[in-house]
Design a protein around this nucleic acid. Structure first.
Lengths: 331, 331
DNA sequence: TGGTCGTGTTAGCGCGCTCTAATGGAACCC
DNA sequence: GGGTTCCATTAGAGCGCGCTAACACGACCA
């Protein structure tokens, strides 16, 4: 059925070991033999068996990447960048989806361990920190989008991102700035805390609806309704992410509020969504590609030198000002 | 380093073969021994080596899924559904990204072949048909979103989808219905042809701008500008996909046209984008989950019985009417 | 001519597992 | 009690490959 190195060797008239050397691009094979082997391999349609290779070499040259969902456009940019960077380093990437559920994530991780990946990237993991540390004892692990002590980490500085957003609104002259909370989503608590601290530092009141945005459009709508239908409604909203910001935009549109004249809105993540002309949402940029690149680079570094001390790398976000923010009209 | 069945067997006081039986959930193992083995495995932190298993069994119980991009929300729904369905059937899914480029796709396929996947799903593949047929001779292959003779295929009936969209606009009373073309994107030509035929059947004129939408927002903007800035501009636009429809919405918004009062817009794919409250775009639904489910089911069927004749399955799309379409105001 | 070196090639072990065939008992029957 | 059946358990071969150590052979030097 399957063509093996044995078959290729027979056809090329050499030993099996030589075929193995050619496949691994060893420099100490004569040009003539190399060519003969490659021709034979081509004629037979030989495809190296990666499983046999792993078994013999104990390496797979692949990294496992566990993400919570692929729908998330930020995540897909991380994935893309990680794959590109991994390929440069000679690694492949094995993707697994955690589906926001620790049990599913655990299964995904186990599948990857079964495949003996050389390293593991956990992006926005929902697993308990202890479990992640245990895992890191078995295999090189990198956590992205979250901080876990004792394990390599790459994350965005949510605190300074939130501060950027709020200060932008303050500088425009807004006094009543509300926040749509992200619930227990990754980074949501930090974003809310930074929002409160920044307002406090400027002597302004915080306003957070009881309804949580939960990083969803539906949540954003509910929260925005609570905010905008009350008296003394805010002139600006800082949403914990773009999706809930879009919920706020939808509510404003339905209520006949003009954006940005009557209401300013800032999102978080700078997803492709916010970049659509039709949306044009001011948003805090999550440098997705940078996260992916740095994650792979750091993990490969650990694979090469497992003894080094754990590193934490924080990326600084930037604000992308678009057309949903402006100075408040005198209401 | 790595814990093996040998180690587990030693600790549990049984033979290695019995450990193997327990791991494969064989029914003919006594409850007591099973428990002893599982306990020993747990204590040692044993993780089965999938590579060794493949080598010995010659099966991987995984399907390879090659997609062109993950950004595409339709694709991610296909992926999600495929994974779920595969899991039900006892298979895992190995994902690879083709990046719209045949060379990249070819490498992705070869990686999957190296991993000896039991079957291959090519979604929106860019490979030549001949090459796909060659591939199908080596391994069970299913093509999604495109038709290839002699190979199992799952696709959406673009023709009837486009007809649905256009007839919806005609029934609302529109006479000047334009189309934003999808260029060489998958299904774009069929959609445009069906658009023309449907209008013709109703004795109405077709109007397609020279600027192609190319399935992008930018393209949709350019095409819509060409359409709406001219005299005798359309009262309705049928865009080849949601993204270019959003481009049209952006132009309408900038020009101060009210949607749907002044302009109706229909998209294609029913992506999450169109479902946002803020967008609320009437769109033709691509049953992404159904595609994924049917693809896996058909492929598993072929794996189980490789001799069966190739099947082609066409899925019928439906129109999701939202708030971007209405009867034309008497302009 | 004999020895040393370097280069290209090969023999063969073992990676961790599955699976077939064989083994050892317990249970049962006459 | 000897034979038969049946079942849980085990021995052992082999999956395709990487890699170490050994090998052949010509070039080179003394």
């Amino acid at each position: 059925m399957s063509v093996t190195q044995e078959d290729v060797a027979a056809r090329a008239g050499v030993s099996r070991a030589l075929v193995s050397l050619v496949m691994r691009e060893s420099p100490r094979v004569s040009a003539s033999k190399r060519e003969a082997v490659l021709r034979a391999a081509g004629e037979l349609g030989y495809t190296p068996n990666a499983h046999a290779a792993q078994l013999a070499s104990r390496r797979t040259m692949t990294l496992g990447l566990v993400v919570m969902e692929m729908q998330n456009p930020l995540m897909s940019r991380v994935i893309q960048a990680a794959e590109d960077r991994a390929e440069e380093a000679g690694y492949g990437v094995s993707l697994a989806v955690g589906d926001m559920d620790p049990a599913v994530e655990r299964r995904a991780v186990n599948r990857l361990l079964g495949r003996r990946v050389d390293g593991l990237i956990l992006a926005a993991s929902r697993l308990p920190s202890d479990e992640i540390r245990d895992l890191a004892a078995q295999v090189p692990v990198l956590v992205a989008g979250r901080r876990v002590n004792g394990v390599d980490t790459v994350a965005v500085d949510d605190r300074s991102g939130a501060r950027l957003a709020v200060e932008h609104l303050i500088n425009l002259g807004h006094k009543r700035i509300a926040h749509i909370d992200g619930g227990d989503g990754p980074g949501a608590q930090i974003r809310q805390r930074a929002y409160r601290q920044t307002l406090e530092a400027h002597g302004l009141p915080a306003q957070v609806p009881s309804t949580t945005g939960g990083y969803t459009e539906r949540g954003g709508i509910a929260a925005a309704q609570e905010l905008l239908e009350g008296a003394d409604s805010p002139t600006a909203i800082f949403a914990a992410n773009d999706l809930s910001a879009l919920g706020a935009l939808a509510v404003a549109k339905d209520m006949g509020l003009r954006v940005p004249a009557d209401l300013s809105v800032v999102g978080f993540d700078n997803t492709p969504l916010s970049q659509l002309q039709y949306v044009n949402l001011t948003s805090v940029n999550q440098p997705g590609p940078d996260i992916g690149i740095l994650a792979v680079a750091t993990l490969v570094g650990r694979i090469d030198d497992p003894e080094q001390a754990p590193r934490t790398r924080l990326l600084t976000p930037e604000l992308r000002v678009r057309r949903t923010t402006a100075a408040p009209s005198g209401r």
